[in-house]
């Protein structure tokens, strides 16, 4: 009976938390239906999320592409299917690894920073100060981050895709001696628009999730430095888990027939 009660309590707690996050997101999005619009703040957030994440995402992408080519060669050479490596690399990177790896890296870098910044603003009364200066904190702090995450991560993923495919190309050409023209030809031979679009849809969803988790946990942080640290941890962990959950859900929705 106690076990059942625990399961029930956990389920209710999970549903309540989900409800609070959804209401938080909808309330923040609703502020965008009327002026004022803080375009300058949105652009600054896009710069923070996109431009300053380029080094970490680029490095991750190139090594992911390189390892993918290396592993594919090791496996495919066992049944003389080396010619499929280019296709495997591009489809894996564009459909799956580009958005997921970029999402996880940005969750660690940007999600944590958002939670820490907004959390510090909460515990030092800066959010109260915003309110007393006739500025809605959801409109000024949260909405620009949500929109910037939604728009910027797909742009970042396009670059990660290109770098990741280039990593596979480097290994295939310079380590395994593939013909560059043939490799590039095979890279694009089986690549469809839907592969790229699905990756970008995932990136947009992941970008929104990262910003939402960063803002939500930061906005509701309590209790000084410890509370801010806890909010940062929650933001990164919850965004990372949700990225993997939504990755499966979107893949299932788009490709499972």
């Amino acid at each position: 009976m106690n076990a059942l009660a625990s399961i029930g309590a956990a389920t209710l707690g999970f549903m309540a938390a989900t409800g609070r996050i959804v209401i938080f997101a909808l309330t923040a999005l609703a502020t965008g239906l009327s002026p004022p619009f803080y375009l300058r703040v949105i652009l600054r957030q896009m710069l923070d999320i996109g431009y300053f994440s380029l080094p970490v995402v680029g490095l991750t992408a190139i090594f992911t592409g390189m390892v993918l080519a290396l592993q594919s060669y090791t496996g495919f050479s066992r049944f003389q299917a080396e010619s499929a490596i280019a296709t495997v690399v591009v489809l894996s990177v564009v459909r799956e690894l580009g958005p997921v790896i970029s999402g996880l890296m940005v969750a660690g870098r940007v999600g944590a920073a958002m939670a820490a910044e907004i959390g510090t603003m909460r515990v030092t009364e800066q959010i109260d100060a915003l309110t007393t200066l006739s500025t809605d904190p959801l409109r000024y702090l949260v909405l620009p981050r949500l929109l910037a995450g939604l728009v910027t991560l797909p742009l970042l993923v396009v670059i990660a895709d290109i770098i990741g495919v280039f990593g596979g190309y480097l290994v295939s050409i310079y380590k395994f001696g593939f013909n560059p023209v043939t490799y590039l030809d095979r890279t694009f031979q089986y690549l469809e628009t839907s592969d790229v679009v699905s990756g970008l849809v995932k990136a947009a969803v992941f970008g929104f999730i990262i910003s939402l988790m960063g803002c939500y946990h930061g906005y509701h942080s309590r209790g000084g430095a410890q509370g801010v640290g806890q909010a940062t941890t929650y933001a990164v962990v919850s965004a990372s888990i949700l990225i993997l959950v939504f990755d499966y859900g979107i893949t299932q929705a788009l490709f499972a027939r």
Partner: peptide, 28 residues
């Protein structure tokens, strides 16, 4: 209303003049 908070609650990301101007620019 104007409020002076206990810890000052200045916005770290903005220079002083934008802090003081915040209510005028963003609020009004």
């Amino acid at each position: 209303c104007g409020v002076l908070f206990q810890g000052s609650a200045l916005f770290d990301s903005l220079p002083v003049w934008e802090n003081v101007a915040f209510g005028l620019i963003q609020g009004r």
